[in-house]
């Protein structure tokens, strides 16, 4: 059973990916950092900018 933080971080990362706000490649790292409380402003910005400017192949 995952800790509440991990469970919630997984939900959030998955939803952000579905909403095309972050790339699927970043789900794992964002989940890990978020659950450990290590997701900083720079990480958020980089992930969202990647989501905006790096359109994945369909």
């Amino acid at each position: 059973m995952n800790s509440p933080s991990i469970e919630l971080a997984q939900n959030i990362a998955s939803r952000l990916s579905t909403a095309n706000l972050i790339n699927a490649d970043d789900i794992e790292s964002i989940t890990a950092k978020m659950s450990e409380g290590k997701l900083k402003k720079e990480d958020w910005r980089l992930a969202i900018e990647k989501g905006v400017y790096t359109k994945e192949e369909p």
Binding site: S3, P4, L8, S35, E36, G37, L39, K40, W44, R45
Partner: peptide, 18 residues
């Protein structure tokens, strides 16, 4: 301890500041 989501809350605070 059963609803401890402090890790996510820290990330949320960072995002809010961003």
């Amino acid at each position: 301890p059963f609803i401890d989501i402090s890790g996510v809350e820290a990330g949320e605070a960072a995002l809010r500041e961003l």
